[in-house]
Design a protein around this nucleic acid. Sequence first.
DNA 1: CCGTTGCGAAACATGATCGTATCGGAATTC
DNA 2: GAATTCCGATACGATCATGTTTCGCAACGG
Lengths: 199, 199
Amino acid sequence: MSTRESATARQAGRPRSERAERAILEATLDLIGEGMGIAELSIEAIASRAGVGKTTIYRRWSNKEDLVVDALAVLRTPMPPIKGESVRDDLIVMLTAMHADAVDGRNRSVMHMAMGESDRYPALLAKFRCLVLEPRREALRAILERGMATGELRADLDTEIALATLNGAVIWHCKWGGGESGTVLAPRIVDQLMSGLTG
Amino acid sequence: MSTRESATARQAGRPRSERAERAILEATLDLIGEGMGIAELSIEAIASRAGVGKTTIYRRWSNKEDLVVDALAVLRTPMPPIKGESVRDDLIVMLTAMHADAVDGRNRSVMHMAMGESDRYPALLAKFRCLVLEPRREALRAILERGMATGELRADLDTEIALATLNGAVIWHCKWGGGESGTVLAPRIVDQLMSGLTG
DNA sequence: CCGTTGCGAAACATGATCGTATCGGAATTC
DNA sequence: GAATTCCGATACGATCATGTTTCGCAACGG
């Protein structure tokens, strides 16, 4: 049996350059990071920024949305470690991480782009949801439910509302409120919310 | 003394058509309402939708951003009446109104557009701020401060955080959460928050 | 060495929008 | 009625991005 990569036999010819692919995705993120919306993003600009021929882009993605979706995946920021000792501490860690995501450079722009334009790009919305929204949502939900079990939080908590409140407070304050650091902001939110959540 | 409109004498020639102006602004809002971002908005499309020559638009606005800013002003939605009897009731009224703004048709699109693209258009940001954000913020703040005075809310309330929390919860839930009606959502938010805010 | 495929560069035809200009006609002042 | 200004329509040249094609070279399998 000859050399194979997988079930399907290795294609003949020169293999696609992994290097070019990364350069394209990076260039895309760069441009978004500079404040470009999807509509302003041009394949030409991406190609030129990546030092790549347009052909190389068209060969891999048939439209801009697919490209942006794949670029999103590169940005993957890891979840912070949750100690699971105190609900208050865990929430503060999560909110601080969320705040950082929403404030820091390229991440920030991509975040805002995704939130602002996902309406018009369903595939982008789906990816953003399962890549950013859902993981956060589940992490927060886990903290809340553990709190309900241990009694740190009241048992009849309205989890949906609590999630919206936590997420919303961070994002809203980042976007429209003052520019506090996350380390200052997160405890303020959590503490003021907890006094209620503990009812 | 001859007929005058104001201090400066009436211009000679045909006056600008008020009708055309309204049609242009309405067409702009329509297109935004159909999900167009500022970048996708073309003067040609607006002119054609408004049944107007491009000239008529260029004569009045020198760039797209100015046009959109003026269009924003048309959308002005009135604040709901605040009874001032109970903080809980007042908050529910406000959040319900905010929810309606964020959900309903054209308003919704303009809102999202403003939130998503205001970063790139400073004049738009400024207008949006003073037209939508600040009035809401002040109305909410007034309710909170009255509550602190009457004792319905604890006196050491962190108003900034409370504002971000209220606003953020509504917007976040509209954008990413389920599709409840405002009448259901607002009390859930307010009640869960109050039990905390009342300390 | 040959066939195949990817590479970057460039040229290409197509189409959209731009901002300006020109047109005949309408509205208004003097 | 003359001068002025706006109207909507249409045409214009300019710019830019589109997606395709062609080119000569590079990298891989057999």
